[in-house]
Simulated scan of single mutants.
Amino acid sequence: MATSREYTFTGSRVTNHVREWPNDRPRYVAILVHGYGEHIGRYEYVADRLVRHGAAVYGLDHMGHGKSEGDRVLIADYEDVVTDVHTVEEQARAAHPDVPVVMIGHSMGGLIAARYAQRYGTGLAALVLSGPVLGEWAVVPELLAYPEPPDTPIDPSTLSRDPAVGEAYAADPLVWHGPFKRTTLEALATTLDVISKTGSLGPLPTLWAHGEDDQLVPITGTRAGIDAIRGTDLTERIYPGARHEIFNETNKDEVLDDVTAFIDRALSGRTS
């Protein structure tokens, strides 16, 4: 696996933890945006593939996640998280001036990345959304119907057809295994609405990749969100039988081959 180093910065609300997988002469910078309740350390395999593809890779633990400070999984405003990701992009650009930047967001990270593209998309060369929380996610209204959201932990078997992925997730002390916070759910609902109303990503090359058997973030709800933001350059990849974490699926190499091929096309479009 590619070597990495870690650092912190003062974010919009807390001290954030960042992991960097360096590349002395990168063709592009890749910024990874992780999902709800997890942390950037779960993306070692993805980062390794991207480094070998020519990227310098960066990713932070969002506030209240992983090694970053803050009440666990508490996000009062996703605009603050987007701002923190932008700080990471600025740091990456300072280290690698004039190198194109690609953003890759998974699940809740797809929501963050989509909103990021609406705010800062003119600075991106490409956007990859993996099983993104967009459009209509039934979990949010279902849990907000309760005064206090019930403790309904994620079933690890819904992550991947590879049992080892679920086992590692269940045993990971940096993963949140407790209930949603009501504040976080309300912020999610607000951001889903803002993204849909803000609309098109314009000419930004965008890849939407999703597992056909994703029971955590079903395709049908996400498709409505994709339709609301789709621009003029959208590529869609739906993987038969795959579950939620397509980067950890049994066909993860096929998925990452598609991601790197998409990035190559987007980068070549910038230079042609």
Score class of each variant (00 low, 15 high):
Met1Asp: 05
Ser4Tyr: 11
Glu6Met: 06
Thr8Gln: 08
Phe9Val: 10
Gly11Pro: 04
Arg13Pro: 00
Val14Gln: 14
Pro22Ile: 05
Ala30Gly: 14
His34Tyr: 03
Gly37Ile: 04
Gly37Leu: 03
His39Ala: 11
Arg42Tyr: 02
Tyr43Leu: 01
Gly54Phe: 09
Ala55Pro: 13
Tyr58Trp: 15
Gly59Asn: 02
His62Cys: 05
Ala76Leu: 11
Ala76Val: 10
Tyr78Gln: 01
Val99Glu: 09
Pro100Gln: 11
Met108Glu: 09
Gly109Met: 08
Ala113Tyr: 01
Ala117Ser: 14
Gly121Pro: 03
Gly123Ser: 07
Ala125Thr: 04
Ala125Cys: 09
Gly131Arg: 07
Pro132Ala: 06
Leu144Arg: 11
Asp155Ile: 03
Ser157Asn: 10
Thr158Pro: 00
Arg161His: 14
Asp162Gly: 03
Ala164His: 04
Tyr169Ser: 00
Ala170Thr: 05
Leu174Gln: 14
Val175Thr: 14
Phe180Gln: 12
Lys181Leu: 13
Thr183His: 08
Leu185Asp: 11
Thr190Leu: 09
Leu192Trp: 05
Leu192Thr: 07
Asp193Glu: 15
Val194His: 10
Ser200Gln: 06
Leu207Pro: 02
Glu212Trp: 08
Gln215His: 11
Pro218Met: 14
Ile219Gln: 09
Ile219Cys: 02
Gly225Trp: 10
Ile226Lys: 05
Ile229Met: 05
Arg230Ile: 04
Thr235Lys: 14
Ala242Gly: 09
Arg243Asp: 01
His244Gly: 08
Thr250Glu: 07
Asp253Pro: 00
Asp258Val: 01
Val259Phe: 12
Val259Ile: 15
Thr260Arg: 06
Phe262Val: 12
Ser268Asn: 05
Ser268His: 07
